[in-house]
Nucleic acid binder design. Structure first.
Lengths: 197, 197
DNA sequence: CACCAGAAGCAAATATCTGTGCTTACGATG
DNA sequence: CATCGTAAGCACAGATATTTGCTTCTGGTG
């Protein structure tokens, strides 16, 4: 009769499932095989029933956004170095190190992929962006609190953040060791040129 | 008996189909509704049988890449202004104008989306990138031919191209009118600082 | 003008993704 | 230690996407 032996049914706790699914997303994005990312594939990779994924996250976008947010918060301690330049440099060093690994590039890719194309989403979009820039904002706030005069967000975005994103997207390694310092130097030297209003 | 009246079956030439499908891709990407892009939807929008799309392009990635390449080549005349600064400025102005429209942002988004994750694709990836940077390379070559000393590709990428991409991705409008000139100025002023080897 | 290669359209089959109702395990609470 | 809410797993159903075999039109060639 081979009873169904229901005890064989292994089940993991919600937290374990969450972690396994997040890891599966990163794994699949990092993988050489460029199969397209979808929920069934992620679930299988994570060893989780796909219905669990559908019920918890609902859509691939939501899952990607959650994965990105969780990972970035986990991996970006963002400790205070005492100066604006130090903080920016630390951020850049971490980013440079990050996009050298397939996993790190995958994360950036995920950020882009999870960006809602939709545009009724103008607000959702902005919120998404805000969250992504939170660490930069914090650096600016700390600098201001110290009495330093940080460059506007736009400039940091253009000259520090953008170069890392574009490299991650196109799969280009950052040029050399001094790269982060170079970017920070340029950013800060600019600021003095372009006077505030 | 209402014969099938086979003459009612309208058919377009391959070129017409190609153009209609490209336009449908752009239309759907620009549209406020953020429904996800897929081949059946594109085919329907283009008024083309979906099997035609499958047979001609095979995958959504390939279709996106083809669309992007065709459009960019069509819309980027890249005329010679006589100076390096002028050419760079023209490029930047065109880019700034481009990403102000939903269609333009959609195009950039398509570039990113069509970027092969795949990586057997390391070569394919590089080729994709090369094609995207072709206009920049041409600007550099012309400058060199004139006896000017253009900044290395890396720097142009970081300080001129990257800012436009990141803005398109996150849906941020370029700040102000003088923006392109500002970016070009910064790029060129840098070049003198960082001496050549 | 007849013929032929190439490609578009149609229909139907197959594969894959997405969602639902239900059962069952886990962990918290009293 | 009994109870209960939450969420995971299973089976199955519905919706979509992808592929295939075939027919029919188009445009070029001799």
């Amino acid at each position: 009769m081979t009873q169904k032996q229901p005890s064989a049914r292994i089940r993991r706790s919600p937290d374990q499932v969450r972690a396994a699914v997040h890891q599966a997303v990163i794994d699949l994005l990092s993988e050489p095989e460029g199969e397209d990312l979808n929920i069934p594939a992620i679930a299988q990779r994570a060893g989780v029933n796909h219905t669990s994924v559908y019920r918890r996250w609902g859509s691939l976008d939501a899952l990607l956004a959650d994965t990105v947010t969780t990972r970035l918060e986990r991996d970006s301690p963002l400790n205070d170095t005492g100066t604006l330049r130090g903080d920016l440099l630390a951020w850049a060093e971490a980013s440079a190190a990050g996009i050298r690994t397939p996993e790190g590039r995958a994360l950036v890719r995920a950020v882009v992929l999870s960006m809602p194309n939709s545009a009724q989403a103008q607000s959702e979009r902005a919120q998404h962006f805000q969250r992504r820039m939170r660490s930069i904002e914090q650096i600016r706030e700390r600098a201001t609190a110290r009495g330093e005069n940080p460059p506007p967000l736009d400039q940091i975005l253009d000259h520090l953040v953008a170069p890392f994103y574009i490299r991650a997207i196109f799969g280009i390694d950052p040029p050399a060791d001094g790269y982060p310092a170079l970017l920070v130097d340029r950013l800060l030297s600019h600021r003095s040129e372009a006077g505030p209003a």
